[in-house]
Write a protein that binds this DNA or RNA. Structure first.
Length: 116
DNA sequence: CTTCTTACA
DNA sequence: TGTAAGCA
């Protein structure tokens, strides 16, 4: 806990208050003590920045919705990676085809070529 | 000694 | 938001 306070430069009161506002959800362990993960600390730092910018509970919900947007974008990126894989295979096939049709045999490289 | 909860200011 | 009391 003290570690989180130092890492975030927030008071225990603030950290607990943000927890009641559902901004962070640390897991509990022995004796009902808060166990903060890296993600929780990162979110607290983000909250602090928003607070310094003047935002209150408004910016708080902004972050909550922002995470939903990120998760939605992840799905789009997954679709993109699949199409990229297809494009990659197509280009690969085209390169093989071009090289095969043009049997590059004994043609000494021009003297102007530099090692690269 | 540190953290947690509740509650008052 | 700070702080005090009482418990773990």
């Amino acid at each position: 806990m003290g570690t989180v306070m130092k890492l975030t430069s927030l008071t225990a009161r603030q950290i607990r208050y943000y927890e009641t506002q559902e901004l962070v959800k640390p897991q509990r362990s022995d004796g009902n003590r808060r166990l903060y993960s890296l993600n929780d600390v990162d979110r607290l730092l983000e909250i602090k920045d928003y607070l310094d910018e003047g935002l209150n509970m408004a910016g708080i919900r902004e972050i909550f919705s922002q995470k939903q947007v990120e998760s939605e974008k992840r799905k789009e990126e997954q679709r993109k990676s699949l199409t990229d894989d297809d494009v990659r295979k197509i280009l690969h096939d085209e390169i093989l085809r071009a090289g095969g049709l043009q049997g590059m045999s004994s043609q000494p490289t021009s003297p102007l070529q530099k090692p690269f």
